[in-house]
Simulated scan of single mutants.
Amino acid sequence: MPEVEFPAPVWRKSSHSGGGNDCVEVALFAERVGVRDSKNPDAGALSVSPRGWAGLLGAVGRA
């Protein structure tokens, strides 16, 4: 079976982050949302469903 190459994810920070490395970065995949620490991007990423991501954003918005 031939190898399939996927494009590299495009990681982005919130426009509200203040420009420092004190936030998280997100990348959108076909059916997942990747979240990683902007200070240590090589440490790996958390993968959540779009529904889980929406729930997290809703919870943070109420905090």
Rank of each mutant, 00 (worst) to 15 (best):
G55K: 07
L56T: 12
G58M: 02
D22C: 08
G55S: 07
G61I: 05
V48D: 01
R36K: 06
V26L: 11
R36C: 00
A27R: 02
V35A: 00
V4Y: 05
N21L: 11
A59W: 15
L56P: 04
A45E: 11
L46H: 01
A59T: 13
R51G: 10
E5D: 14
V24C: 11
A27C: 08
F6K: 14
R12P: 03
D37G: 04
G52K: 09
P9Y: 08
P41H: 02
P7D: 11
P7H: 06
G55P: 05
E31T: 11
G61R: 14
A43Q: 07
L46W: 04
E31L: 03
A8T: 15
R32F: 05
G58R: 07
A63D: 13
E3N: 09
R62S: 14
A27T: 01
V35S: 05
G61H: 11
S14E: 11
D42K: 03
N21R: 10
D42N: 02
S17Q: 03
R12Q: 15
G55Q: 10
E3L: 13
G61S: 14
V60G: 06
E31K: 07
E3F: 10
F29Q: 09
V48T: 01
A63W: 14
D37A: 03
V48Y: 00
V26F: 10
S47A: 08
V24P: 03
C23K: 06
A45D: 00
V35P: 06
E31D: 13
V60C: 12
P9Q: 10
V60R: 10
N21I: 02
A63K: 11
E5R: 15
L28W: 04
L46Y: 04
P7Y: 04
G18T: 05
R32K: 10
V60S: 04
W11L: 06
V60K: 02
E3Y: 07
G20H: 09
A43C: 00
G18C: 06
L28N: 06
S15F: 09
F29R: 12
E25Y: 02
A63I: 13
G20F: 08
D42M: 00
V35R: 01
V4L: 15
C23M: 12
G52C: 10
A30W: 06
G52P: 01
E25W: 01
V24Y: 10
E3K: 13
G34C: 04
S49T: 15
A43M: 07
S15Q: 09
G61W: 02
G44Q: 03
A27G: 03
C23N: 08
C23L: 11
K39C: 00
V24D: 01
R32V: 12
R36A: 02
F29M: 07
V48S: 01
F6R: 15
G20Y: 07
R62K: 15
H16N: 12
G19N: 05
F29A: 14
P2D: 13
K13T: 14
E25P: 04
V33K: 00
P50G: 00
S14D: 09
N40H: 13
G18M: 05
D42E: 01
D22S: 14
R36F: 08
S38I: 03
G44W: 00
S15R: 12
V24S: 09
E31R: 12
P50T: 02
F6C: 12
V48H: 03
A30V: 11
P2M: 13
A43S: 09
S15N: 14
N40C: 09
E5Y: 15
D22N: 14
P41D: 00
